[in-house]
Computed example of a mutant assay.
Amino acid sequence: MKPSFVFLIDDNGQAVKQLTKEMRKITHVPVQTWNGWDTDWFTSWLLQWGWLRKGFLLFILFITVLLTIACFTPCLIATIRKLAGQVTYQQMMILYKPEGTEAQSP
């Protein structure tokens, strides 16, 4: 059997046509369509009622949002405290005057 990547070009250019035909076969990608989210793998054990499946997924989403809020709340509180401390420190430094500076002013 002759390898497909070795071609001898004849006078009519048949090998080039064959090569391009094989290249098109290799590079052809069929049209892909989107059919939405496939959640059957996650809810296949539930009863086959549509409202029950959607309700379960909404419940999981709700729990995920609550856990996310619970994780980010300490970070947010620490950031606010740090910002308040920096502002307070800057205001104190503006009001602070070292001793003996009143006599040196021109």
Results as ranks from 00 to 15, higher is better:
residue 16 V to Y: 04
residue 74 P to T: 07
residue 88 T to M: 10
residue 52 L to C: 05
residue 16 V to E: 09
residue 59 F to W: 09
residue 59 F to E: 02
residue 37 W to Q: 04
residue 86 Q to L: 13
residue 64 T to M: 06
residue 96 Y to W: 15
residue 56 F to A: 08
residue 101 T to H: 03
residue 43 T to A: 12
residue 106 P to A: 04
residue 53 R to P: 06
residue 47 L to D: 13
residue 75 C to W: 03
residue 101 T to D: 01
residue 87 V to S: 04
residue 64 T to W: 02
residue 35 N to E: 12
residue 22 E to W: 11
residue 53 R to C: 04
residue 21 K to Y: 15
residue 14 Q to Y: 10
residue 19 L to T: 14
residue 52 L to I: 15
residue 36 G to E: 00
residue 90 Q to S: 07
residue 3 P to E: 14
residue 75 C to E: 00
residue 104 Q to T: 07
residue 90 Q to M: 05
residue 25 K to S: 04
residue 13 G to M: 06
residue 90 Q to R: 10
residue 25 K to P: 00
residue 68 T to M: 04
residue 80 I to T: 14
residue 21 K to S: 14
residue 72 F to D: 00
residue 80 I to R: 02
residue 69 I to N: 04
residue 11 D to N: 10
residue 65 V to I: 14
residue 60 I to G: 00
residue 22 E to D: 15
residue 73 T to W: 07
residue 70 A to D: 01
residue 71 C to N: 07
residue 14 Q to P: 08
residue 96 Y to F: 14
residue 22 E to Y: 09
residue 58 L to M: 10
residue 91 Q to Y: 04
residue 60 I to P: 00
residue 77 I to K: 05
residue 48 Q to R: 11
residue 15 A to C: 09
residue 20 T to H: 08
residue 24 R to C: 07
residue 93 M to C: 11
residue 71 C to R: 12
residue 100 G to M: 05
residue 46 L to C: 05
residue 22 E to P: 02
residue 42 F to A: 14
residue 84 A to C: 05
residue 77 I to M: 03
residue 105 S to E: 05
residue 73 T to A: 11
residue 102 E to V: 07
residue 81 R to P: 00
residue 11 D to P: 07
residue 58 L to H: 06
residue 39 T to I: 15
residue 17 K to Q: 13
residue 92 M to W: 13
residue 78 A to L: 07
residue 84 A to P: 01
residue 97 K to C: 01
residue 63 I to F: 01
residue 54 K to S: 08
residue 88 T to R: 14
residue 48 Q to S: 08
residue 77 I to P: 03
residue 106 P to I: 09
residue 27 T to N: 10
residue 26 I to M: 11
residue 62 F to Q: 01
residue 77 I to F: 05
residue 41 W to M: 07
residue 61 L to D: 12
residue 14 Q to M: 05
residue 67 L to Y: 07
residue 60 I to M: 11
residue 43 T to D: 06
residue 95 L to F: 02
residue 104 Q to C: 04
residue 65 V to Q: 08
residue 2 K to W: 13
residue 56 F to D: 00
residue 11 D to Y: 14
residue 8 L to C: 11
residue 35 N to Q: 14
